[in-house]
Amino acid sequence: MLKATIDADILKESIDAISALVTECRLHTDENGLSTRAVDTANVAMVSLTLKKEAFSAFESTKGEIGLDIAKLKNIFGMMGKNDLISLELPEDGHKLKVSFEGYRYSITLLDPNTIRKDPNPPNIDLPGKVVLSGNDLYNSIKAAAVVSDKIALGIDAAQQLFFMAAEGDTDHIRREFGKSEVNFLNGIEARSLFSLDYLKDMGRVMGRADEVEVSLGIDHPAKFAFYIAGGQGYVEYLLAPRIEAD
């Protein structure tokens, strides 16, 4: 059973965070809120999201699992006005989620959770390099890199105490460095890995709205991007596998 009311913006923000990587997910519900963890079809990136009940204006739920068609839900967003209050309702053992706002009443058929990929286990990765910067700075650098290449190197230069991103195209090159004064936190542990911009562009669009994004890096390791949504009542973590550095 789920019965909740939520601000349209917060719902959109949460669904956007998931839809950057997957088109469907298993949403876990309990009395404290919602959570999901999903990996994209190519096994390259993972999203984990938790939304506390405090993110809702009203929230009541039993423990359950919902198979959500993210793509379908996104289409409905077009109809929602900013600051609309959205009501979500799912009866015990129900298979249709009622979504109502501004006089519209949608009934959305849910997916059988068993047909959706199992939740991955939380991976155990040691990513010693850390930097905290504004989501906007991060997204801008991603966009800049995408102009010249399809991949980007993210790293920390321990000697210079810098966070850097660099993209190498066939003909052009771009590099952006952030010194300690430009970021909110930096531990200068040497790190560098290469990532696909196809993924980062989609993730960046979501991260661009966060005040702060904590980026964790290693050497030829995945990158972790963690940030709060829903005014601090929701938390998102992206994990992105690296590309192999070309010689």
Binding site: V44, A241, I244
Partner: peptide, 18 residues
């Protein structure tokens, strides 16, 4: 073709999941 991720050199998260 999907599993190729259309991109050579892209690693998957598999190596990091236990």
């Amino acid at each position: 073709l999907d599993s190729m991720g259309a991109k050579a050199g892209q690693k998957t998260l598999d190596s990091w999941f236990s």
